[in-house]
């Protein structure tokens, strides 16, 4: 499982969200995608998912160009930053719907569904849920089909402490199976233990993409967050 990004550029009218970005992620890695607000993280994730169509460049998932393809998304579980669901559906209906829409009926992994205790409130409608609960539904949906690539956009935002531990545990478990996990987040401290790599973006470009150990050694910092911050400052100045 790998994702290859080659010279991707994306412009929205006059705003450039991605400028000639190239990188590649491979299985077994758990990558934190970092960067200041509006640096193009979400756009990058959305181009991988085919939701945003790049102005130039090629993205390959498992060696296949994703342009005009959709089957590759069977291998991807996506947890959006702000999960949006049809207001009138219940939690159960949302999960059922997505299960039905995924064609090859793989084994369904409902571990998160039960550990988040969504089964107890499964008949609640989506528009009555709090932001955190919607995040839980999103997480559950992303992990449900046992995908080999997991893309989590701000998974920790809005989750309570217990839910976050549950999610972290689940991510560790999936990572042990050799999955490729891509996380965007601002809270490095919370994710430090599960990460293997850090990919820093700034002003529509990738600033650096290194492994956790490499960053720590090169900056001689013990804490990942401080290490990343000092590296960021070094490169910028």
């Amino acid at each position: 499982m790998n994702i290859e990004i080659q010279n991707i550029t994306k412009r929205f009218n006059k705003v450039t969200a991605l400028e000639n970005v190239s990188t590649s992620f491979s299985s077994g890695q758990c990558i934190a995608l970092l960067g200041p607000n509006g640096c193009g993280k979400t756009t990058m994730i959305k181009t991988i998912l085919g939701m945003v169509i790049p102005s130039a460049g090629v993205i390959k998932v498992n060696g296949k160009n994703i342009h005009n393809d959709y089957i590759y998304r069977n291998d991807i579980g996506y947890m959006p930053q702000i999960g949006k669901y049809p207001a009138n559906m219940t939690i159960k209906e949302v999960v059922e719907t997505i299960r039905k829409l995924r064609k090859p009926e793989k084994d369904i992994d409902l571990e998160l569904y039960f550990s988040f205790k969504l089964d107890e409130i499964e008949n609640k409608k989506m528009n009555t849920l709090s932001g955190g609960t919607i995040q839980k539904v999103s997480a559950c949906v992303a992990f449900m089909h046992n995908p080999s690539i997991l893309i989590l956009d701000e998974p920790t935002a809005g989750l309570d402490m217990i839910a976050m531990e549950v999610l972290k545990e689940k991510i560790l478990k999936e990572q042990a199976k050799g999955k490729l996990i891509l996380i965007t987040s601002h809270q490095l401290n919370e994710l430090e233990e599960i990460l293997t790599h850090v990919c820093m973006m700034d002003e529509a470009r990738i600033l650096f993409f290194r492994s956790k150990e490499e960053i720590k050694i090169s900056t001689q910092c013990d804490k990942l967050a401080t290490a990343v911050y000092s590296l960021f400052k070094n490169i910028k100045s």
Partner: peptide, 16 residues
């Protein structure tokens, strides 16, 4: 009104 739903669908393995 189904913008959200369409968004959800597009991220799934479905043809646009």
């Amino acid at each position: 009104n189904s913008t959200e739903f369409i968004e959800l669908l597009v991220s799934q393995p479905l043809k646009r």
